[in-house]
Measured scan of single mutants.
Amino acid sequence: NQASVVANQLIPISTALTLVMMRSEVVTPVGIPAEDIPRLVSMTVNRAVPLGTTLMPDMVKGYA
Rank of each mutant, 00 (worst) to 15 (best):
N1Y: 14
N1M: 15
A3M: 12
A3C: 09
S4F: 03
S4C: 07
V5R: 02
V5I: 14
V6P: 01
V6R: 02
V6W: 02
V6T: 06
A7G: 03
Q9E: 12
Q9S: 08
L10I: 12
I11G: 02
I11L: 09
P12R: 07
P12A: 09
I13Y: 10
I13K: 15
S14P: 02
S14G: 15
S14H: 14
T15I: 08
A16W: 06
L19E: 10
L19S: 11
M21P: 01
M22V: 07
M22F: 05
M22N: 00
R23T: 08
R23A: 07
R23I: 09
S24L: 05
E25N: 08
E25H: 07
V26L: 13
V27F: 03
V27Y: 02
V27S: 05
V27L: 06
V27W: 03
T28I: 08
P29C: 05
I32S: 01
I32L: 06
P33W: 10
P33Q: 09
A34V: 10
E35V: 14
E35C: 09
D36P: 00
D36R: 08
I37G: 04
I37R: 07
P38D: 08
P38S: 12
R39C: 13
V41L: 12
M43L: 15
M43H: 09
V45R: 00
V45L: 09
N46D: 09
R47W: 08
R47S: 11
A48L: 14
A48M: 13
A48N: 14
A48S: 15
A48K: 10
A48V: 15
V49M: 04
P50I: 06
P50D: 15
L51I: 15
G52W: 04
T53M: 10
T53L: 09
L55C: 03
M56D: 04
M56K: 09
D58S: 11
M59W: 12
M59H: 09
M59A: 11
V60C: 03
K61A: 13
K61V: 15
K61P: 15
K61L: 15
K61F: 11
G62Q: 09
G62F: 07
Y63F: 14
Y63R: 04
Y63S: 04
A64N: 14
